[in-house]
């Protein structure tokens, strides 16, 4: 890993990390970059492994979506991650595309970034020499296609904390082209039949997946009888609060509508399952 980071350091802008290549090769084919060195991460020991310590799940940065969707530990500790990974793209992309590549590329249309933001996940980052740091997912992306990573920093792993008891997570997306048009994750915690904590994250329509505080607020305190009205309010709040990537006259109103509807539907789903148990 140190070697990979130092190679990037040494070659500078004409070098890039290379994992599944599902994004990188597209960019290269379109002639948008002029790279002379690719540093392959796939064979680095441990970079694809999945482990658990103190209940925290740790997924290696070079694990493929396919490996994630079929891993028993992920299934046990973060089932939502399995269902998300299994719906990404298509079988070809899932077979080689990696979680680290998805997060490092920072395409706004990312399912894992949306989910992981809601789960309060962190990325472990490795740079040249001994440099290491841990970033909450919310701080990893600074804008569309822009991360807080230095050129020679690589994503070593993603860590996902255990869910609080009584928590249910729902992730929904709508896809009109190859990539999702909108991604929504809602995570709610229920105690004694009432929602005490909620996280609502909206991605793809926005440059970066973000929690939407007013939508979350609308969900807290809901009980079975108030769910219907509450999720609609959350949808309205999300539609108001979301910062859109395309807010043109032509696309803006529809993107807000998608946000409204998908947040309400996803919240309903999360709450129904939280209140069941």
């Amino acid at each position: 890993m140190e070697e990979a980071a130092s190679l990037l350091h040494r070659f500078g802008d004409v070098a890039s990390f290379y994992a599944g290549g599902t994004e990188l090769l597209l960019v290269m084919k379109m002639g948008l970059t002029d790279l002379s060195h690719l540093v392959d991460l796939k064979r680095i020991d441990g970079l694809r492994s999945v482990s658990v310590s103190n209940g925290t799940l740790r997924i290696g940065g070079a694990a493929t979506h396919r490996e994630i969707e079929s891993n028993p530990l992920v299934m046990e500790y973060a089932p939502a991650m399995v269902s998300v990974a299994s719906r990404i793209a298509n079988a070809r992309v899932r077979a080689v595309g990696t979680l680290g590549g998805n997060l490092a590329f920072a395409d706004p249309a990312s399912d894992p970034a949306t989910l992981l933001t809601a789960l309060g996940a962190c990325v472990e980052v490795r740079g040249t020499g001994d440099s290491r740091r841990t970033l909450p997912l919310e701080d990893l992306w600074v804008g569309a296609y822009q991360t807080a990573l230095d050129h020679d920093e690589l994503i070593e792993a993603v860590t996902i904390p255990v869910l609080k008891p009584g928590t249910s997570v729902a992730h929904e997306r709508m896809k009109f082209q190859e990539r999702p048009a909108i991604t929504v994750t809602v995570s709610v915690t229920a105690v004694n039949g009432s929602i005490v904590d909620a996280r609502v994250v909206v991605g793809a329509v926005a440059p970066v997946p973000r929690r939407l505080a007013r939508a979350e607020y609308a969900l807290v305190g809901l009980v079975a009888e108030t769910t219907e009205a509450g999720v609609d309010l959350a949808g309205d709040a999300a539609a108001d609060g979301v910062q859109l990537l395309d807010d043109s006259d032509e696309a803006g109103p529809y993107n807000r509508q998608l946000t409204r509807i998908l947040v309400a539907r996803t919240a309903r789903q999360a709450i129904e399952s939280a209140l069941l148990v």
């Binding site: 597209l26 379109m30 009109f176 082209q177 190859e178 990539r179």
Partner: peptide, 8 residues
């Protein structure tokens, strides 16, 4: 939209 990513 001259790629199959954007032309479905």
């Amino acid at each position: 939209n001259d790629t199959l990513l954007d032309y479905r």
